[in-house]
Amino acid sequence: MVFNSCFDIIGPIMVGPSSSHTAGVVSIGKFGHDLFGTAPSVANISFYDSFSETYQGHGTDKAIVGGLLGFNPDHAGIKHAFELAKQQKMHFTFQLNEECPYYDHPNTLIVQMKRGETEMKFGGVSLGGGVSKIFLINDNPVDILLNSHIDYDRIRKKYLPA
């Protein structure tokens, strides 16, 4: 079961307009931020399917950048994520694609990010209602639900070069 709590259904408390295309995407970005322990200096983001068709209307682009900056889904700064990223000298690009080759769901994205010498790639899927999952880290399939406790140290040890 993916939805584990009454607060997965009544919640999150979040900035609109979409739980799957905004809030769930902020959480995916925040995973990248928390894994690095800081915002990346470069982020190349690929949107797939529904994300690539409707990202502008849902603020999906601002949501992923806001998450990479370390914001939570109810952060008022999400609206201004692009300006805030520029101030922090974070460079980001977007690429739009049709269906995702790695995971069969319309709300998927891949982030390739870099900070100093450290580089990594991860894939996230937004499952609805603000609940998201990481399905890929550096080409390894994983299954990390973002509405549960995440052991970042273990993930770093396993997937990030020391």
Binding site: I9, I10, G11, P12, I13, M14, V15, G16, P17, S18, S19, S20, T22, A23, G59, D74, A76, I78, K79, G128, G129, G130
Partner: peptide, 21 residues
């Protein structure tokens, strides 16, 4: 309308359907 303005709402179960409950 608050949701469409990127204001703070509670997803129930989603933001797009946050007005009903």
């Amino acid at each position: 309308e608050t949701n469409a303005r990127m204001g703070v709402i509670v997803a129930t179960p989603t933001a797009g359907s946050a007005g009903v409950l």
